[in-house]
């Protein structure tokens, strides 16, 4: 039996990236710290994966200042939402064999 692995999106081949997209689809806009907390990651780990998703155009980044503290929030772009849903559909298809 041949699995259609190639139908899975390369951008989501790491569980951290899958996790980031999952959080961003369930919530409209999420701050860096909340994202880190819900996925239980370190700063550097999360930053590099989010950067990859940003580069792919799947995540939109908003940088703001609250008082003097920088506050970065992330949201899934329309493209990102579509790509993630396609990825989920591909996973389900694999399951059904």
């Amino acid at each position: 039996m041949k699995y259609a692995i190639h139908t899975l999106n390369k951008a989501f081949d790491h569980r951290v990236r899958l996790g980031v997209m999952a959080v961003l689809l369930a919530n409209e806009s999420v701050s860096f710290n909340d994202l880190k907390e819900s996925l239980d990651l370190t700063d550097g780990n999360l930053a590099s994966h989010v950067a990859a998703l940003e580069k792919a155009g799947y995540v939109e980044v908003t940088k703001q200042f609250i008082g003097k503290k920088p506050n970065t929030t992330y949201a899934a772009s329309a493209e990102g939402k579509l790509a993630f849903q396609e990825h989920l559909a591909a996973l389900e298809k694999l399951l059904r064999g």
Partner: peptide, 9 residues
Amino acid sequence: EIRAIMERS
């Protein structure tokens, strides 16, 4: 896992 993360977050 995706489902669990979406719920939890």
